[in-house]
Design a protein around this nucleic acid. Structure first.
Lengths: 345, 345
DNA sequence: TTGTATGCGTTATCAT
DNA sequence: ATGATAACGCATACAA
């Protein structure tokens, strides 16, 4: 009944140990102090089960030693990989990471920014699919406490780690062309998002640079999910059974597509080659294994953590810093069968 | 250069609006107040871009309105599903959820409990694979602010939502037996964990209740991961090519196993039937689709959120509450081919 | 309705 | 080395 015992505060400890709160505080926060009093204080702390109130401490110190990572959808393993890296990186520097999923809700990012402004966290690493003008303005306002992973306008004054995903997409399609594929479909993610834009750009560039016509009928817009990939296959195939490859805007889409293709009895890669983007672990064990473009999620996570934490720790110049990584094509089974076509006149 | 402007506090707003901080506070926290002053205060807030400092507010209110969910490994989609449910549930009641992954590190749970004791969060929902005596003691000490999802000793005085996973496992194996399978292998997860124990129990019970001998050679212990499932297949098959089914301790293991079986040219389910546990989404689109036992992750998440939040909101009796859900067998392609054996003498 | 003043539990400054 | 005390920014009980 009476276990609603109040938690001990620093003054309880001080009283118990017969010293001042100043002394207790010093001993709690530094190793300093003469062995004699140290002993007494530590005993008192143990007896009373004293744990410093982090809220009060944060208020006084003006820092919570806590950061958050905001991802569009935690169901996508690529963000999980990124989160794990960042968590490790943060922990090493004495920060805690909490993970927030925007669940594809644009309000999710704003919600996280509220957290920052309310001082719930010291900093934010934010992956946004669709950085609206309004969002970017808010981000700039709190620059110095935030790092954006992904594309934000070039001139935005925020720390930013990006990847040349247009180049990555182009490389993927080029790889399909190199393999002899000529009718290459494209299943894109959620229209209006930055990643959808860059991938589309890469797809078109690859075709154009090879003197090929971009057939809009071979492009379908879906969403960044397995269901999206699954459904898009039917739309893509309607009247296009000459298709010999599909480039998917990310791996999750690719797995949805792969599933649907198999249901339809279409061989991958024998009939249709498949390439995704992100390089999630599943691609290494699926059947067939999935060719993809690594966007270096862990690497970007690590870089973002470094940028943010350096700034929080005070060791960063005023100017926003931008760093860009280069994607890497990873060829696996889903795209390896070579197909020889007639060389176009 | 001079954008390091200090954030406005409530007294700045009060000064600007020409009212007392009491008035400002009231207007910020309630809708009350006469239109006249309300207007002035709201304007001042807008002008100064005032956002209440949540740390100070928490200190005063003695509550952060923040909870956390601790999962063993965020790479397992079943926890993602649970997290999403809890996040929704929490938001509805004005709480924020932050997700922490213990990354299979037993220290991860302790770390989260530290957070609770430091008052970083008001409450904790914790999924532990291996609740040590020490951990349970800590959990009991902070009961009233914590809810455990998963098995903790029956007599532990903590809110607890559990699932009869032994029964679920037994049902899965019974299903394989009903399908005519007789040599059923078992790929278990990390030895020493509670889930590994209950699944093993269910597996054995099913065989025994059918008067079948439990062949220890058909049981391998791995870990709760795809890699674990993948590797275990070889160990299981060594000298046991008469195997006609495998029960996997969870879906992630099952997918690893499925991959390896296909590499070996072993048909699923034609030669070896496969059943997992958890019912992650991937099982609906894999080839073949995966038979599994739903452990009702979302449902358990919802219940846990309810138990915890009710307690935090003050509307809960003193006694710890235990709720148990019943798993549900979901038959899909990976176990459906019927095999007729000779009826044993 | 509005203003004042105290406390939430720390840390940090300044004497001692 | 140690002790007293003033913030940190907000909420609230109480007074006006």
């Amino acid at each position: 009944m009476n276990d609603k015992q109040k938690r001990a505060t620093i003054v309880d400890v001080a009283t118990r140990a017969g010293v001042s709160i100043g002394t207790v505080s010093r001993i709690v926060n530094t190793q300093a102090g003469p062995e004699a009093t140290r002993r007494r204080v530590l005993d008192a702390i143990a007896d009373l089960e004293y744990v410093p109130n982090h809220v009060a401490r944060s208020l006084k110190r003006r820092s919570t030693e806590q950061i958050a990572l905001v991802v569009p959808d935690i169901a996508n393993p690529v963000y999980v990989a990124m989160a794990k890296t960042i968590q490790r990186e943060a922990k090493e520097r004495g920060f805690r990471l909490s993970l927030m999923s925007a669940n594809d809700d644009p309000g999710g990012e704003e919600f996280a920014l509220d957290s920052l402004e309310q001082m719930r966290v010291d900093g934010l690493i934010i992956c946004s699919l669709k950085p609206t003008r309004k969002l970017v303005e808010r981000l700039e306002r709190v620059r110095g406490r935030v790092c954006v992973v992904g594309s934000v306008p070039e001139e935005a004054r925020v720390d930013n780690v990006r990847v040349d995903s247009a180049g990555g997409a182009q490389g993927a399609v080029q790889h399909l062309l190199d393999g002899g594929r000529r009718r290459i479909g494209f299943i894109n993610g959620t229209p209006g998002t930055v990643p959808a834009g860059t991938r589309s750009l890469g797809y078109r560039r690859a075709l154009e640079e090879n003197g090929l016509h971009v057939d809009e009928a071979l492009i379908v817009n879906g969403e960044f999910s397995m269901a999206g990939g699954y459904r898009s296959v039917d739309r893509l195939l309607a009247g296009h059974d000459e298709l010999d490859a599909i480039f998917c805007a990310n791996d999750v889409i690719a797995f949805g597509a792969m599933r649907r293709l198999r249901e339809l009895g279409i061989g991958v890669p024998s009939q249709v080659a498949l390439v995704g983007m992100d390089d999630i672990d599943l691609g290494k064990i699926s059947t067939p294994t999935l060719s993809t473009v690594s966007l270096l999620a862990e690497e970007r996570g690590r870089l973002a953590a470094e940028l943010l934490l350096e700034r929080l720790l005070g060791g960063a110049a005023e100017e926003p810093r931008k760093v860009t990584v280069t994607p890497r094509l990873i060829v696996r089974e889903s795209s390896t069968d070579y197909i020889r076509h007639e060389v176009p006149a």
